[in-house]
């Protein structure tokens, strides 16, 4: 497995330089059957990452660019009257795919946002009284611009909660940047990426996540972390049970990627900023729910051993 994970990460690394950690997190998210939210400035490689992931996993891929004048039908699809058959024909929207890249999701109105978010949660679309299942697997990789930028509709907490992880890419380091500048445009090399796993292999991998052992000791640590978010003054609200489940599942996937059959505290610590960061809020901060710094404090303050 390590081999495979390494190869996937290496493969994507050829188009997204110097972002191993982010790539692994994204992979862990998909292995845990969760949706991924990538938040960063424009031009940091969000779209590249999403497309590379889809390519390498051999999944069908659609991309929707969200704009402020978009309507739910633009994503979900619509029915058109067909004169020949004298009936309505359903034209499926871009949502009917395995990997959906929802680009700049916070540029559209809440109405359209929630249409997509509903599909994410139920993994099905109900239109005109007819329920249509989405393909398996179904991933949404959404990107959003920092909410401080103009022309954004920030996602409310309840909708942020639907994403298993939220990651940031950040600027590449200088070596990666130099390589980028010297090489050809990565976008053009995206098509060179060949699928490394088949769909069946991917499902097997996903199932393997559940077999990773989480010992009592580790669950104790996990609970200490969760309790800390619920009792410490600096957290305006604690982590929900859904959040704690997400943390454990992601830590398992992370251990799998690391090639281990059991979870260690470092796995939890590695995924915690991505999993918890968008679910908690600093009690002193009334702005953006961006608790990454808060999560770092959490990790530093909670004893791995138990007091």
């Amino acid at each position: 497995m390590q081999n495979l994970a390494d190869r996937i990460v290496g493969q994507i690394g050829t188009v997204l330089l110097g972002k191993e950690q982010a790539v692994k997190l994204a992979l862990a998210c998909l292995l845990s059957r969760g949706h991924l939210l990538i938040e960063d400035l424009p031009g940091m490689g969000k779209t590249t990452l999403a497309q590379a992931l889809a390519n390498v996993l051999g999944l069908s891929y659609r991309r929707v660019q969200f704009t402020s004048d978009m309507l739910p039908a633009d994503i979900l699809g619509f029915s058109v009257f067909d004169r020949e058959s004298n009936g309505f024909n359903f034209h499926p929207g871009p949502v009917f795919t395995q990997v959906l890249l929802a680009d700049e999701i916070n540029r559209t109105t809440p109405k359209t946002q929630s249409a997509l978010l509903e599909a994410m949660e139920e993994r099905q679309v109900t239109l005109e009284g007819e329920t249509r299942p989405l393909p398996e697997p179904f991933f949404v990789i959404a990107t959003q611009n920092p909410t401080t930028q103009s022309g954004t509709f920030p996602l409310p907490e309840s909708q942020l909660d639907r994403f298993l992880m939220r990651i940031e890419l950040g600027y590449p380091d200088s070596r990666a940047e130099r390589a980028l500048l010297m090489g050809i445009n990565p976008r053009e090399r995206l098509d060179d990426i060949q699928p490394l796993v088949s769909y069946d292999e991917f499902v097997v991998l996903q199932k393997q996540v559940d077999t990773i052992k989480a010992s009592d000791s580790l669950l104790d640590y996990l609970q200490r972390l969760i309790n800390y978010t619920r009792t410490a003054q600096e957290f305006s609200c604690g982590l929900s049970p859904r959040g704690s489940l997400a943390l454990l599942r992601s830590a398992r996937a992370w251990a799998l990627i690391e090639g281990r059959q059991y979870v260690i505290p470092e796995d939890v610590q590695a995924v915690a900023p991505a999993v918890i960061g968008h679910r908690v809020r600093d009690a002193g901060d009334f702005g953006d729910p961006g608790g990454v710094a808060l999560v770092e404090r959490l990790i530093n303050n909670v004893d791995v051993m138990g007091a």
Binding site: I264, P265, E266, Q269, I299, N301, V302, V304, M305
Partner: peptide, 9 residues
């Protein structure tokens, strides 16, 4: 050691 430090770290 730091309290929040796992064995591997």
């Amino acid at each position: 050691h730091h309290p929040g430090e796992g064995p591997r770290t």
